[in-house]
Design a binder for these strands. Structure first.
Lengths: 220, 220
DNA sequence: AATTAAATTTAGACAAATCTAAAATTAAAA
DNA sequence: TTTTAATTTTAGATTTGTCTAAATTTAATT
């Protein structure tokens, strides 16, 4: 199925917001797309019409399976083109986004798959984001600092940035190690410290300094 | 300056028709673009408005300098992408046109120039058409058979396909050799023979068989 | 030269995507 | 729990590119 560039942009933005915020609001989507809430509402109706979106007026919305599949294909194209621009055409990683915003709407599926092969089936784009494969599967997950993790989002510890023994001791004391599944249950804006929950354990508090050095990936 | 995909398509089609037919008509353009004459007229007004086109109603039209420059940039993009698809992504030369029709509308000038460098500054696309350089100059001209040359269009002999001695003798007798400037002054549909004029000489007649084996390039 | 035919343009409509301003609904605060 | 505020949606307009049908202009024929 082929969708207009504008529809693809909406699908992609909803997918990202859904992923990061759990729930998507009309205002948030309008802000993400640099457009107006009224315009978003118009588009939501069309996407629902095309059975890409679960949506009832005033009651929020989210992509259904079809919508997610479509969004992932756009993301795949975007990230493959970014990879191409940086690795083959010598662009800087910070100047490729705008161009990829255009390239991602080229429709040929065959083109994307050939490009993928030409690039050697990369699984991470120049910004560190995972590139879904031809079937829409993310083989790699995005690695971020624990301090960037949204509230109540389950994640898994994937690396420790600064491996001083003092740091490792502190983490070990708090039962945090590679592979530990955790989520942030509270954030304290005063000093940016975090309350972290590990399954079937009392919550522990981590300083901003520690959180910055714990890298996590989305849990599925 | 940036133009819509539809405008770029019109500019490109006018450029080609202008080049091949000398004069462009509303109907011919509509046919080339698979659209309606009325739609073409609408677009002509907009292109005139934007000072890309010399146009007065009912009196025909042609691109001005600005229009030509814009058209050539689109053609450059189209042909570079075709070259990329065939040489790097292993597409067949006969399956790249449609994809290039989309890619040619990506706007970044920097992208095109980087792509050009990545491809090694090719001067001919996979169909044998010349690729204009970054400044819009055609360094290579298209080679076609004399039998495909339009009426009254000046061209220059660039190659002889079948070099039998009988053929060369015949050509020599008619004062035709590499570099000869000529034009077709008449075509005889009965046997597809041609009357050919060479500057300051009486016209000569060539059979379809001979014409097929004489290759020519546009003269500038 | 008058008539017919072909080409071109205008007039008016439509679809997609967007907008502003006003109305409806939901959420937050007093 | 009213009242107020924020969010979301509707109604109606705008822009771009397209269309059909009718009118106009130019070209071709008799």
């Amino acid at each position: 199925m082929k969708y207009s560039a504008s529809k693809e942009n909406h699908l992609k933005a909803i997918f990202h917001l859904q992923h990061e915020q759990g729930i998507v609001t009309t205002n948030a989507l309008a802000a993400a797309l640099q457009t107006r809430p009224a315009s978003v509402t118009d588009m939501l109706k069309k996407l629902k019409e095309q059975k890409l979106l679960l949506y009832e007026r005033y009651k929020g919305f989210r992509l259904n399976n079809e919508g997610k599949k479509a969004a992932i294909q756009v993301i795949r194209k975007h990230r493959l083109w970014e990879y191409f621009l940086v690795k083959k055409l010598q662009f800087g990683w910070d100047e490729v986004h705008e161009i990829a915003e255009e390239l991602e709407h080229i429709s040929s599926k065959k083109l994307v798959d050939r490009l993928d092969a030409f690039l050697g089936f990369p699984d991470t784009d120049p910004h560190g984001d995972p590139i879904p494969d031809s079937q829409g599967r993310f083989l790699q997950r995005r690695q971020i600092s624990l301090s960037e993790l949204p509230l109540n989002k389950l994640a898994q510890v994937s690396a420790i940035a600064s491996q001083t023994s003092e740091m490792l001791e502190l983490l070990q004391y708090n039962h945090i190690q590679l592979g530990t599944r955790l989520l942030i249950s509270r954030k304290f804006p005063f000093d940016n410290s975090l309350e972290v929950k590990i399954r079937s354990r009392p919550p522990v508090t981590l300083s901003a300094q520690v959180a910055k050095n714990v890298l996590v990936k989305d849990d599925e």
